[in-house]
Amino acid sequence: MSGQATTIRDLERDDIDGVARLFQKTFRGRAKASASLNDSLEQSFLRHPWDEPGLRSKVAIDGNGHPCGFIGIVPARLELEGRNVLAAFAGSMMVDDPKANPLVGARLLRAFLAGPQDISLTETANATALNMWQKLGHPLDPAYSLNWLKVLRPVSTGVQLAERTVPALQLARPLGRIADRAVGWVRRPAPLDQPQGRRPMFHDVTRDDFARALLVLKDAYPLRPRWDAGSLDWFVRQAEQKRSFGYPEWRVADGPDGRPIAAYAYFASAGGIGWVLQAVSLSTQREGLVDDLFAHAHAYGCAALRGAAHPWLVPALMQRRALFVGRAFYVAHARDKTLLEPVKAGQALISGLAGESWMRLIGDRFDL
């Protein structure tokens, strides 16, 4: 089958089964898809609360009428200085047998970029997808591409990372915990140098309380989502279903007037590597947020903590000796370059819940 024999069109409900099988083959190494995966694909790409008829995911159909490629497109409603901005995120790009169909991925990306959106974004490009973006003249954004890792228990972290190559090493987890205690790495991370009276006091909250805090704190960022209570509730409910990452923890700090000044959500895994979903705060509270995040994850028993880019936290993360890696790449493109100014400044709330990371495709198991 030649790449020239394929057609690119909008995703339809009848394509879901074929796209699910392609997802399992591409990202999970499995031949079969589950009903829960089909439901997640349909929720994410056909029942999105910000559905835009002109911004549908694209599917490549081969000469036999079967899906042979896919790019997930998620609309996003943003605002910048009172201006409504239509955004679109592209992710979950996959091509069946890319060596035999070398042009399909590029055609899918071009179809996405030809859409009606004001700004085109991707939060989760891998090296192959990034190469396609760059060939079209759209470089990665370094600030939003900095994934980070904070090691809390080094031996257990090493075991966790080694398991990804040699799964049988999970049997060494108890030895890792013993070794960490033996070398004295059970100490709680020391806070940054910040006066005690200025440190935000965080407390555990419900998922709904966390969402209410986000509705306030989003306004601290020039380019931000136009969430309302209904749409944000949908995103948060989708996001909490990441069973591969652990248990969701929701934390908020309030100011003297009772209004939220900082909030974060992460997935905790005792003995494992926790994963940060979202972290937002007023500019004066960023160091305190990082302190509480690391201390809470350590107390929970996490071996380490990782997260995608939150550029406003990078200085505090660097001071706390977090490691930075290029694990997933962020690209932003807009014809109106003023839309890119807050992105380049690292002050756009366009990642995590405000990006693509709410999707169950990132972190759910989809058991058969």
Rank of each mutant, 00 (worst) to 15 (best):
T7D: 01
I8S: 00
R13K: 10
R13I: 12
D15A: 05
D15V: 06
D17C: 03
Q24C: 15
R28E: 15
A33K: 05
S34Y: 02
D39H: 07
S40K: 02
H48A: 02
W50E: 15
K58E: 03
K58W: 00
A60M: 01
D62Y: 00
G63F: 00
C68G: 03
G69I: 04
F70G: 13
F70E: 13
G72Y: 03
G72D: 11
G72I: 08
E79W: 00
E79K: 01
L80E: 02
N84E: 14
V85S: 04
A87H: 10
A87Q: 09
A87M: 10
A88L: 05
M93Q: 13
M93A: 13
M93R: 09
V95M: 04
L108S: 03
L113M: 12
G115T: 11
Q117D: 09
D118P: 09
N131Q: 05
N131C: 01
N131T: 12
L136P: 03
H138C: 07
H138Q: 06
A143G: 10
W148N: 13
L152G: 12
G158W: 04
Q160E: 15
E163S: 10
E163F: 00
E163N: 11
R164Q: 13
T165S: 09
A168M: 09
A172D: 02
P174Y: 02
L175M: 09
G176W: 01
I178H: 02
I178P: 00
A190S: 14
P191D: 07
Q196H: 10
G197I: 05
R199S: 11
R199K: 14
M201P: 00
V205I: 08
D208Y: 01
F210Q: 01
A213K: 02
L214F: 02
L217G: 09
P222C: 07
A229P: 00
L232T: 13
Q238R: 15
E240K: 12
K242M: 07
K242W: 03
S244E: 11
V252Q: 10
D257V: 12
D257L: 11
P260Q: 01
P260T: 01
A265P: 04
A268P: 01
G271W: 04
G271I: 09
W275S: 15
V276R: 03
Q285Y: 06
V290E: 06
A295G: 14
C302T: 06
R306Y: 00
G307T: 10
W312T: 15
P315E: 10
P315G: 12
A316C: 06
M318S: 11
R320E: 07
F324M: 12
V325M: 11
R327E: 14
A332E: 08
D336Y: 01
D336M: 03
E341S: 11
K344F: 07
G346R: 03
G346E: 07
Q347V: 14
A348G: 09
L349D: 13
S351Y: 01
G352R: 02
L353V: 13
G355D: 11
